[in-house]
Design a protein around this nucleic acid. Structure first.
Lengths: 251, 251
DNA sequence: ATAAAGTATTACGTTACGTTAATGTCAAGG
DNA sequence: CCTTGACATTAACGTAACGTAATACTTTAT
């Protein structure tokens, strides 16, 4: 005769790899109700309970909440298959999110490593005339002389004071935004950063919506600017353009 | 003059994409302490607070706890780089775990799809003589006649009663273990399943450690057994062998 | 017989806030 | 001046899934 194996809390806890408290809790919330020894009130788990616990732990391992598990196991006609396929999607989403996180951490790490000694001043030294020619060569190779956008002409028409002001404001926007970059281009931080940048710009001149958008383009299309932004962060320029565009929509 | 931008809770909450309650909470736990308006006691967040909040949200996005973040931001000489590299490892581990979960869910889904109509009896009908020849062919192709292990001879020496007993016990161990399979071969569930199987076996004869291990091999090496196990689950046979080996170590 | 170990129940602690609730403040409109 | 509505404040309870005592009873081992 196959004597029905009986488990006490601790025993079942040990073989199942969970704590006794967990079993108490599952009993408490009605997820796994054991029999009781009428003499001493001890919990008695039989083979059926063990199998149910295995189901519970399996589903829990899949990331389902205890409440969901309870529904799945107790609802008679519950569609486990559909639930699992649904859950599979959630897992894939979490996977993508994790992958993005890893990438962001990687970028942050390499940023910290590469630019540890580079202080705020140095970050924008790319604007200095000395370094300019180096970037110019590479940029000319990458975009070609003819491919420089309209915005460059606009830029060329600025006075030296205006240019300097834009440099300084660009430095400000960088300082404010680079920390929020990992949060995505459309983040409220980015929008607010652009808004502040806009307000600051007005200390020097009156930038229209077109000028703002033009600056966004400029940072991308102008080899000189772009090379500098790329040096800071590979995606800073497109990030700024998108943030500016979003901000301008709200004007 | 660049007038220092002041934020109230709601304003900062809006631009940062968090709730006002969150800022209250961060204030409460000392993670982000704003200035106060002496007139009305309102919180005042300045640009420094905004930057610190960006740091906080960034690190939070990386999955760090608020407590860890507090240490990182307040400990003067804290090694952020090392912390991030540490955290990166944790992320990769979570990624692997997620990938395993997806795989398990996939297997479970395909199992549910393919074997929905297969009840417990049918699961082991592979032991019936009618189906035996089909498997034998395929098995012979896969392992070759000469490659049948020692254990098969041992098996051949068993009496019909013993064989039937092992069949029944194999069915028992399957019923107990298949649910725990996704939890991994070395799981306590698996070990306990093997232990129970061992106890049950002793109802019929006295299996030595060698016989147990031999049965584990048998399930893998014997084409007849293996084909049946493969039909149930592609990895059931090696799973059983590993579980048996682990269990035998504790004897 | 006594100590160790296991059982039970009760209840508070944890994380990172969400959600009222009760009350105070500020700018705009009648 | 008063109301209204949208802000602000603090206090307090609720969440999920248990961990961690505290206290008391039972079983097991010596």
């Amino acid at each position: 005769m196959d004597t029905q194996r009986q488990y006490t809390v601790r025993q079942l806890a040990r073989v199942a790899g969970v704590s006794a408290r967990t079993l108490h809790y599952y009993d408490e919330i009605g997820l796994l109700r054991p029999d009781r020894n009428p003499d001493n009130g001890y919990r008695i788990y039989n083979r059926a309970a063990l199998l149910r616990l295995q189901q519970i732990l399996f589903l829990r391992e899949l990331g389902l909440s205890l409440e969901e598990i309870q529904v799945i196991l107790d609802e008679p006609g519950f569609d486990l298959l559909a639930a699992l396929e649904q859950h599979r999607k959630a897992l894939l989403a979490r996977q993508e999110r994790l992958a993005a996180l890893v990438q962001t951490v990687d970028r942050t790490i390499s940023y910290l490593k590469g630019n540890a000694a580079m202080d705020d001043q140095q970050l924008f030294e790319g604007f200095s005339e000395e370094k300019q020619k180096q970037y110019e060569e590479e940029a000319a190779r990458r975009w070609g002389r003819a491919n420089v956008s309209e915005s460059q002409k606009r830029w060329a028409s600025y006075s030296p004071e205006k240019k300097k002001a834009v440099f300084e404001e660009a430095r400000q926007i960088y300082l404010d935004l680079v920390a929020s970059m990992p949060l995505g281009p459309a983040s409220p931080q980015a929008q607010e950063g652009v808004a502040r940048w806009h307000r600051n710009l007005r200390n020097f001149y009156e930038p229209t919506k077109e000028i703002l958008l033009g600056l966004g383009d400029l940072y991308n299309d102008d080899p000189e600017f772009n090379a500098t932004f790329v040096r800071i962060h590979p995606e800073l320029a497109p990030f700024l353009r998108e943030a500016i565009q979003i901000y301008c929509k709200s004007l």
